[in-house]
Every structure is written in structure tokens, then in C-alpha cells.
């Protein structure tokens, strides 16, 4: 491995109230290291509304505009317009919402902003359920997972919405997945997103959740890495909605990933086989698109 020295400024303060081993906190820390101080965040109801600090505290060294659940993309559009009026083109606006605020509640505002070609980065940090309110399923929760609202043998039997495909279908200039287990890739993608100004840029950022998924906090990065290595969460990017590139190969069986988390503990071999089949299909589709590019 490369032994590059860790350098550069931090924009996260210690003393925040994220759970031990919180993947979403690592996600923010790495994202801001890439984006730098000229960044403004728009954060709706989410874990990060809490991690960001209880009034009058803030856990970030850059401004956050806290908004209502459904309005991240609308507020970010307005913030961009206000900065443009003041002649500030330097500051990057980042909508930073969880999967509930993106896949479900904030979706119409996001779709509309993408269609209007708004100039900001939208990061969905994805922990695959409404974690802040106590682990309720969202449309990002994967097939097979147990949550408080899909408990016992009523575990979720619908597939996770493919948000990057949906955003790519808006023909936005840049859509990408990223993972806390691949910091260099993550930081590169955020810098690239910041450099593109011709429309909305969307980053789907995998953020493991020890509390909600049921694994020991020290495994946050390992679980995130396994998600990529097993192709459960492939790393790829899409330019202009059409040009696909896969950033990281992986060929481990998805079982290795599922077995790290208690939310999947109940799955039978047949269930795991079904997930494997789905993962393989999705991967094949992705490879085909990347080959077309």
C-alpha cells in the first residue's frame, strides 16, 4: 500500500454526538477534506441533523443550513441563487441528506432541481433506513433486511431503489457512488463533482451504520469495504447520464458481506442465493453499460 502522509485541514469538530463507529461521520469528514472551507451544507432531518450539533453548537467548521425533511434540494437551489446574486461563485453548495430524505421524502425536490440544472452537489449518505428515528425501513433498505418496521419474518422483500440510475436518467452531468472504505476514490469524486458547474452533481455515499445494521463499531470500514468487494455496492460513476465507468473490481460472494450484520442474520441459504443472483444481474448490467461507454 502507498504510505502517503495524512495532511490537510479538518472541517469536523470533535465532541459531536455521532454513534461510536458512525460511517456517516466518516463520510462527512472525508467529503469536507476534499471540498475545503468554501463549502456550505444544506442538511434536512436526518442523523446528520443531530451529528451537526444541538443548538447553539455546531460540529462543523463550515456553515450548515438546517431545513425541513423534504426541502434539501429546494433550499440548496435557493442558497445557490442567493450566493450568485452576491457574486460568490467560489463557494460550493452541498445538499447532504440521508437515504430517507433522498429516496423518499426529499425526492420530488431533488428530481425537480436536477431537471432545472441547479448548480450544487447533492450527497445522499446512505445508511439504508431511517436510523435517527430508530431504524425504520426506507426505499433504500435492501431486500432481506430487518428493520423496526420490517421485523421478524416480515423482513423487507422489495429491492432497494437504484437511486444513481434514477439520477442518471435526469441526464445530470455527474452521478457517482462512493464508499467510506475507499477514501481516495471518495475524495476524488467529490473534487470532481465540485469542479463541474453545469448542473446538479449527485453522489451516492455508502455509510455503514453499526447501530442500525447490527455489527461491532470497529467493523464500520470493513463492512463498507466488503459491500464493494462483494458488488453489493459497486463503485462507479456516470457522466452526462450515459457514460459509465466502474472504479473498483470485486468478486467475493455476497454472503461474506451479509454475514457481518445482524439485520441479515435470519436469511436462509436460498435467500442469500437470491440476493447473489440479484447482485450478479445488477453487476452484469453495470458492466455492459461501462463497456458501451
Amino acid at each position: 500500500m502507498k504510505n502517503e502522509l495524512y495532511s490537510g485541514a479538518e472541517y469536523l469538530n470533535p465532541g459531536h454526538v455521532g454513534c461510536p463507529g458512525c460511517g456517516a461521520t466518516i463520510a462527512m469528514k472525508l467529503a469536507l477534506r476534499a471540498l475545503g472551507e468554501h463549502t456550505m451544507l444544506v442538511i434536512p432531518a436526518s442523523c446528520w441533523a443531530i451529528i451537526g450539533g444541538n443548538y447553539p453548537q455546531s460540529s462543523l467548521k463550515v456553515p450548515i443550513l438546517h431545513t425541513a425533511f423534504a426541502t434539501t434540494a429546494a433550499a440548496a437551489s435557493g442558497l445557490r441563487a442567493a450566493l450568485d446574486l452576491r457574486g460568490d461563485r467560489e463557494t460550493t453548495i452541498v445538499g447532504w441528506a440521508g437515504d430517507g430524505g433522498t429516496f423518499d421524502i426529499g425526492f420530488q425536490a431533488l428530481s425537480a432541481a436536477a431537471e432545472r440544472g441547479e448548480d450544487f452537489i447533492y450527497v445522499c449518505y446512505d445508511n439504508e433506513a431511517y436510523m435517527n428515528t430508530g431504524v425504520q425501513r426506507s426505499s433504500s433498505t435492501p431486500w432481506g433486511a430487518r428493520t423496526m418496521t420490517t421485523p421478524g419474518d416480515k423482513w423487507k422483500r422489495t429491492y432497494k431503489k437504484n437511486i444513481v440510475e434514477i439520477m442518471a436518467a435526469h441526464r445530470i452531468p455527474y452521478a457517482a457512488t462512493a464508499s467510506i472504505a475507499y477514501p481516495e476514490d471518495l475524495e476524488r469524486k467529490l473534487r470532481k463533482a465540485a469542479s463541474i458547474r453545469s448542473g446538479l452533481r449527485f453522489i451516492h455515499l455508502y455509510s455503514s451504520c453499526p447501530t442500525g445494521w447490527g455489527f461491532a463499531p470497529e467493523h464500520s470500514v470493513r463492512v463498507a469495504r466488503l459491500a464493494v468487494q462483494t458488488r453489493a455496492f459497486p463503485l462507479y460513476e456516470v457522466e452526462d447520464g450515459t457514460t459509465y465507468a466502474i472504479n473498483q473490481a470485486g468478486d467475493k460472494p455476497v454472503r461474506e458481506y451479509l454475514r457481518t450484520q445482524s439485520r441479515f442474520r435470519h436469511l436462509s441459504d436460498e435467500d442469500i442465493a437470491q440476493i447473489q443472483k440479484y447482485v450478479d444481474q445488477e453487476w452484469k448490467r453495470l458492466v455492459r453499460k461501462a463497456e458501451e461507454a
Binding site: N13, G15, G53, Q57, S58, S59
Partner: peptide, 8 residues
Amino acid sequence: SSTSTVTN
């Protein structure tokens, strides 16, 4: 906000 979380 007027303070940071470092006091926690």
C-alpha cells in the same frame, strides 16, 4: 449556532 461541539 454560536459555539462548537468541542466542549462535549
